[in-house]
Amino acid sequence: MMTETSVQVDFAGLRLKNPVMTASGTSGYSDELGDFMDVNALGGFVTKSISIRPRRGNPTPRVVETDAGMLNTIGLANVGLDRFVAEKIPTLEAMAEAGVAIFVNIAGTTIEDYVAVTERLARERAIAGFELNISCPNVKKGGISFGTDPVQVEEITSAVKEVTHGKVLIVKLTPTVTDIRVTAQAAVEGGADALSLVNTFTAMVIDIETRRPLLADRTGGLSGPAIKPIAVYLVNRVYNGVTKGTDVPILGMGGIRTASDAIEFMMAGASAVAVGTASFVDPACAAAVIEGIRVFCDRQHITDVTELIGSLE
């Protein structure tokens, strides 16, 4: 008798219908992907970064393609908290009712900013949790400057944790550190319910004709397939060194384009995965990854996808 494969996973106390989410900043605020896929099929949705006030972001060029990847320096451009609540929450409510776990990515320049945005959104029923962005490489203040210092990582995590009203707090870490286990540990100490690994890698492309950086902001964050093997390694490093045996799951991301990419992340220790840059190229990519995971499990006679998590030998 055939048994139906279960692709449900537990994620920090939430039951996700499958382990696939969108990565912040690559799939809009709510249902922008809706023209191309059924957004209600997602395990989770992580919004674009929201800051307390609207941000216009950096000048152009803001993106440049590289081999098997791209650099971006958007600078956390967003509509701000008030417009997000007024315009986007209703759509997110419909997605939440369809069983999609909604996470709002929170950005700020001071701890007070992060706390204020979280506190305001913690009242929203549609929202399952938050992803604390302390790893954006493209803003002068806040972002990565918090995320590279373990003392500040712990401080900001515990400050935000106090106002989440029991909703899930994910801390998104930068890979641009010497030992990511140190900042991961600090986030866990601060009360993180989950970790997002990894944000983009700070990088540069030079226009050799003008001898200037191609991006207006000089540097940007590298994403796409180019970073996938490094991201898989870093997930495995944190899994083995920090989260294994604890109840803190990892949301793995970095260059996921196919189901096999996603499965690698899960084997390395991720409980769930996020599709990011690939959505720019194939806006139905996340749906294809969900289906591909199911096909893999069937082929391998795996009845429960959670068997894959941390199964690396």
Binding site: G25, P59, T60, V63, I74, A77, F280, P283
Partner: peptide, 28 residues
């Protein structure tokens, strides 16, 4: 024309600087 990552408002890269009617500031 601008560098475009996706063409469907996901990547937020292709901004154009626009004058507001009051001309006091610009928006993207």
């Amino acid at each position: 024309e601008r560098y475009m990552g996706c063409g469907m408002e996901l990547c937020q890269s292709c901004v154009v600087e626009i004058r507001t009617p009051q001309q006091t500031e610009t928006i993207y």
